[in-house]
Design a protein around this nucleic acid. Structure first.
Length: 818
RNA sequence: GCCGAAGUGGCGGAAUUGGUAGACGCGCUGGACUCAAAAUCCAGUGGGGCUCACACCUCGUGCCGGUUCGAGUCCGGCCUUCGGUACCA
């Protein structure tokens, strides 16, 4: 009989839902049993759930179910990352309000999610666009504001001309807007920032406390970009001011033959002489018009102009010219450098082009043919540093700088503060009032939430849509009572996702952002699964939030996500699936034909979970056949449990040959299966089940209780991967209770893993010549005669001198001849 | 440029600490069942050679070299693909 997946899948989905099987009692969970499994929540766009969603959620749920069967109290929630640009852009195009489209999408998606058959706790569902949720974004903002971690400054920021909003550094990829691909431009604007840089060091340190993919940790490390070096002051010739530079190579200071300021550097006006003013101004104007890409392109030839001013090199006391050039960035270090062409490729290139002096201060090896020398060697032309290697010279010069009050050792990070304001409508309003008299004032916490108004002209116009809503924007100043204005911007949606895992624990709580007691019990998230595209965005921001919430006493522990797994990307004909490319594969096509268990199992069987791959439905029939055969098998043994009971363990000696074989295979499979699923290696876990079923052809030659022993365990292995089928098979055996209602797992009989006979490879000079079956743990002395009796071995050894014999127990016998 | 991941049959992919390369599945070939087809079941399936056949030989994990009794796995040097990053001083 063909497996009636439609009937069986809806049967179990209804059962699970009615019995609230997946409702986790967070409060009363015994200590040590809690297990918080989380997938990155879903963006509710108008597009349907695609294969990528299934690939993310299905296998993760299988892992969670596996853990649940093992007896853990598993909490697995799902929710909606409901604010954001796409809904708003859709509204501009169609006139459908973002709230309305989002609500409709959420309803559709919820329905589709249920079809996957995940064990989500639907009582914990949340959406970030609800005032009950975003109120707490505002509240956390105010807590940061109090600590000086939320602040407003005028700074050059990334502006996307298409989406008409600013973007965080993390959201600019290759100089383009992460969302729409438009080239971003630099603008000077007053914007809100979160001071993530205060946590730079701790964010690096915390990497030692989490089990994350190494490549993701490395990405974060690179993004944070810690550089150790020194800050050094250079006096401006003929002025009281001085220029501060940051360098990682203070040891090369004697070779600093000129200085470069970023064109926007505040001291440019002061150092520029009247003869050079026109040229400097022209250059600064030109730089302004460049896009980020043009300006930072490494292939571009270096440009710059002389300011006419000079500084004094504090080490050599020489006068050195001050230039401006756009290869020096205002936003890194101090926005100024001491140029050491002898030891820096960029400086060399610049010096060569503009005929500036080059002094080597590290002796390159005799065979060195290049220009700037970056390696280690003895210092030269460096006064009291001469002869020292790089690291000793660094120590000595830093000591000297500190003693002479000219500089000090410092650490600089590449990480910038997180720009969180957006000039868009569909987000969390920033809870600040601007009064012409009193300045910037935070909203009283009791007045929260600042509700996002529904009636807004959200068309793009270069300013925040909220600024055009008179009712929203105009308020009385809470301090002086005069006419004032609300902040017209909304928050980056990455604010929403920085703490949603805490809200899940009790999304209905109205007295606080989250239930602190539950958070202390249930955090950190034990297993977090999501795409690696969030490596330096969401995953960095959430860690920052967690550390802040810890510092204000709301959570324990240093890290929010103790273990992280990235699912791979499923492409179609090599390209990422997307609506705009029109290459999205619809899961319904397969679920309606094979059922959701087959589909989710096929996704797991395709290959390693973290690798993803190009979509192909070629192999799905293999998984379908496996499911059919499995179902047929259980039908043959229907109600077996009503006739017999199985023991927990059988002694091998008491079994007949067929039983022995089956019993061994079952336990080997169970052992392998547990190991593979534990580590998200579902493909090999499924392969082991297929091997098992291939081995069960002779199950009818076993006693009934052995049959039951095998099938009970088989259905329990099936259940995490194909939950509906697993439950059904379990029930077919005549079991009275549902597996997920009363979770159950079986121990491996370790004794059954051991075979009596093993095949060992016989090699001559490392080449395989024969394989022999010998008793387990045979010694070399016992194996040797058998080996040398073998014709195939004799063929290669006769008439030759045996030099050496290598024997590895249960593995190999290698004879070296000459 | 720098950082990271990966290259294994026709295809997706397996291979503990170096120890029988190709598990499992797809596809393909042959057979059974059928009036026929589908479905299902059974057998075979890396390339080449030799053989009536069983067997046997030989080559083979991106390329070149090395270590080792033995390398997909370790080391050195490349090539290709994909991600991240980009004048970060």
């Amino acid at each position: 009989m063909r497996y009636p997946f439609n009937e069986i899948e809806s049967k179990w989905q209804n059962f699970w839902e009615e019995k609230k099987v997946y409702k986790t009692d967070l409060k009363n969970s015994e200590s040590g049993k809690k297990l918080y499994t989380l997938v990155m929540f879903i963006y509710p766009s108008g597009a349907k759930l695609h294969i990528g969603h299934w690939y993310n959620y299905g296998p993760t749920d299988s892992w969670a179910r596996f853990k649940r069967l093992q007896g853990f109290d598993v909490f697995e929630p799902i929710g909606y990352d409901a604010f954001g640009l796409p809904a708003e852009n859709y509204a501009i195009k169609t006139g459908i309000h973002p709230y309305d489209s989002t609500m409709k999408n959420i309803d559709d998606i919820r329905h589709q999610l249920k079809k996957i058959g995940c064990m989500y706790d639907w009582d914990a569902e949340l959406m970030t666009c609800a005032p009950e949720y975003y109120k707490w974004n505002q509240w956390i903002f105010l807590q940061m504001y109090k600590k000086g971690l939320a602040y407003r400054k005028n700074a050059p920021v990334n502006w996307c001309p298409n989406d008409q909003t600013v973007l965080a550094n993390e959201q600019v990829h290759d100089g383009a807007c992460e969302r729409c691909g438009t080239q971003v431009i630099q603008k000077n604007l007053y914007q809100w920032f979160f001071k993530i840089t205060d946590y730079a060091e701790e964010l690096l340190e915390g990497h030692n406390q989490i089990k994350w993919p190494e490549e993701t940790i490395i990405k974060q490390k690179n993004w944070i970009g810690k550089s150790e070096g020194a800050e050094i002051s250079f006096k401006i010739d003929g002025s009281l001011s001085s220029i501060k530079v940051f360098t990682t190579r203070p040891d090369t200071i004697f070779g600093a033959t000129y200085m470069v300021l970023a064109p926007e550097h505040p001291l440019v006006d002061e150092v520029t002489t009247s003869e050079h003013k026109a040229e400097v101004e022209a250059y600064r104007e030109k730089v302004k018009t460049l896009t980020e890409i043009e300006r930072t392109s490494t292939v571009k030839e270096k440009t710059g102009v002389f300011t006419g001013g000079f500084a004094i090199n504090p080490a050599s006391n020489k006068k050195i010219p001050i230039w401006i050039a756009d290869y020096v960035l205002l936003t890194y270090g101090t926005g100024a450098i001491m140029a050491v062409p002898g030891q820096d490729e960029r400086d060399w290139e610049f010096a060569e082009k503009f005929n500036l002096p080059i002094i080597r201060t590290v002796q390159p090896p005799p065979d060195f043919a290049g220009k700037a020398f970056l390696g280690d060697g003895p210092a030269i032309n460096s006064g009291f540093l001469d002869g020292l290697n790089v690291s000793d010279a660094k120590k000595k010069i830093i000591k000297w700088l500190e003693e002479n009050n000219l500089g000090k050792a410092t650490i600089t990070y590449r990480l910038r503060d997180w720009l969180i304001s957006r000039q868009r409508y569909w987000g969390t309003p920033i809870p600040i009032i601007h009064c012409p008299e009193c300045g910037e004032l935070p909203i009283d916490e009791n007045e929260l939430p600042v509700v996002l108004p529904y009636d807004v002209d959200f068309k793009l116009g270069g300013e925040s849509p909220l600024a055009r809503n008179e009712k929203f924007i105009n308020v009385k100043c809470p301090r002086c009572g005069r006419e004032a204005k609300r902040d017209p911007d909304t928050m980056d949606t990455f604010v929403d996702s920085s703490w949603y895992h805490l809200r899940y624990l009790n999304p209905k709580i109205s007295s606080a952002a989250f239930d602190e007691e539950l958070a202390k019990k249930w955090m950190p998230v034990d297993m977090y699964v999501g795409g690696k595209e969030h490596a330096v965005m969401h995953l960095l921001y959430a860690r920052f939030f967690h550390k802040f919430l810890r510092d204000i006493g709301m959570v324990n522990g240093n890290e929010p996500y103790s273990q992280l797994v990235h699912q791979g990307v499923i492409t179609n004909e090599g390209a990422k699936m997307s609506k705009s490319r029109g290459n999205v594969v619809n899961p319904d096509e397969f679920t309606s034909r094979y059922g959701s268990d087959v589909f989710r199992m096929y996704l797991m069987f395709m290959g390693p979970y973290d690798q993803g791959g190009d979509w192909s439905d070629k192999g799905i029939s293999g998984v379908d056949r496996f499911v059919q055969r499995t179902y047929d098998l259980f039908l043959q043994y229907k109600d077996l449990n009503k006739e017999v009971q199985s023991q927990n363990k059988y002694s091998i000696g008491s079994l007949n040959d067929s039983e022995k074989k089956v019993y061994r295979k079952l336990n080997q499979t169970l052992n392998k299966f547990n190991e593979e699923v534990e580590h998200f290696r579902f493909n090999t876990a499924i392969a082991s089940l297929m091997e098992l079923i291939n081995e069960l052809k002779n199950l009818n030659q076993c006693r009934k209780e052995i049959q039951l022993y095998v099938l009970e365990r088989f259905s329990i292995m099936l259940a995490p991967l194909a939950p509906h089928l697993g439950e059904e098979c379990w029930q077919l055996l005549g079991k009275e209770f549902s597996l997920f209602e009363k979770p159950l797992s079986f121990e491996v009989d370790k004794e059954a893993l051991i075979e009596d006979e093993v095949n060992i490879a016989v090699q001559v000079n490392g080449k395989l010549r024969a394989t022999l079956s010998v008793p387990l743990n045979s010694e070399q002395l016992d194996v040797k005669p058998v080996v040398f009796k073998d014709e195939r071995v004799r063929k290669f050894t006769e008439g030759k001198t045996i030099i050496k014999e290598i024997f590895v127990k249960n593995k190999i016998y290698n004879i070296v001849v000459k």
